[in-house]
């Protein structure tokens, strides 16, 4: 049954990829410190599980999980407007602990016993790990395409502006509060979707599946891969989810290796292994450019023309350098 084992890992990887991408929208693109994504992952997981147990079709339950989680996300978005960055980080950590406690206590979430889900059917086929893997990969591909479209839209420009400087963003017409809340809604709704798939693929969930350590894992995926890119969280999710399997021979040292890796990463490469500033990524891009030359942007053309017209770049700036920034 080597294949079944492989598919089980691949399904997990796909689900965590989706989760990492959802966090990336909030923290990577909108720049909001979110340390409690597992709480929302959990809300989606329990919502979908409770719904299908009561006879709701699986796909409909996933949709409902997104909506419910998104509503909670909107709530957090509203709260986030009142908080400064560090306060937001701690508040989201707090929300994670409180939600885990709530999952562990409420009757509807099964308390300490957790919830068992039935394997759902899609088109008359009872889903196994392979099906979950395919379903999640399809969703991940769609999400990546949507994110890519976002980055080329004014919506993406608004998030990038907010991430860089909220005061500047306001000065050219961006309603920062509105976009911040939207980013929270979209990000958490996606994490709820990932949760809905997770609870059905696992067949059983309990509060420990949504503990703070899970949030940290997802943050690590994004940071190790590279926040604010699409490739980063995907790469990070694959690496971190399969690392325990690779390190199986050194089971006792797994957590140590993992945490050591994390510290070394943020110390020497805080932009992530595949972030825009990473030497590894630059090398990859350089190799790729040998075969496919980069299409020049309008900015490149303007700069080249200006430089060839006389003023070498930086000549003025040398003289202009002055005083405090």
């Amino acid at each position: 049954m080597a294949n079944a084992y492989l598919f089980s890992i691949m399904a997990t990887v796909a689900i965590f990829t989706l989760l990492a991408l959802s966090l990336n929208i909030i923290t990577g693109y909108a720049g909001q410190a979110m340390m409690g994504i597992a709480a929302f992952f959990g809300i989606g997981a329990y919502t979908a599980a409770i719904l299908t147990t009561n006879g709701t079709p699986f796909l409909l339950a996933l949709l409902a999980a997104m909506v419910v989680t998104g509503v909670f996300g909107a709530l957090l978005g509203v709260i986030s407007l009142r908080l400064q960055e560090d306060f937001l980080a701690i508040t989201t950590i707090g929300i994670n602990f409180v939600m885990a406690a709530v999952f562990n206590t409420l009757k509807i979430t099964g308390g300490t016993l957790g919830l068992t889900t039935k394997k759902p059917e899609i088109f008359g086929v009872r889903m196994n790990n392979f099906h979950f893997f395919i379903l999640t990969v399809i969703i991940v591909v769609i999400v990546c395409l949507l994110i890519n479209k976002m980055r080329k839209s004014w919506f993406g420009m608004a998030l990038a502006s907010i991430e860089n400087d909220p005061a500047a963003a306001r000065s050219f017409g961006i309603n920062v509060s509105k976009y911040q809340i939207l980013a929270f809604i979209i990000g958490t709704a996606l994490s709820g979707l990932a949760g809905g798939i997770y609870s059905h693929r696992m067949g059983f969930i309990s509060a420990t599946d949504f503990a703070f350590t899970v949030s940290i894992q997802v943050v690590s995926m994004c940071v190790i891969g590279g926040l604010g890119t699409i490739r980063g969280p995907i790469f990070g999710a694959i690496l971190i989810t399969s690392l325990p399997e690779i390190l199986r021979f050194a089971d006792n040292y797994r957590a140590l290796v993992y945490s050591l890796l994390l510290v070394i990463m943020v110390r020497f490469m805080p932009g992530g292994l595949l972030g825009d500033d990473s030497p590894i990524w630059k090398l990859i891009v350089k190799g790729y450019r040998k075969f496919v030359p980069r299409k020049k942007t309008r900015a490149d053309l303007i700069a080249e023309e200006a430089v060839s017209a006389g003023a070498a770049p930086g000549t003025q700036s040398v003289k202009q350098e002055g005083g405090l920034a």
Partner: peptide, 28 residues
Amino acid sequence: SPILAKQNTLSIIPLVAAVGLFTMSSDV
């Protein structure tokens, strides 16, 4: 200090480093 010395680092980066160090301490 080296992490803080780098420009343009997100505020959660030092926090992630701290989490990593903490996990390491428990495991060691």
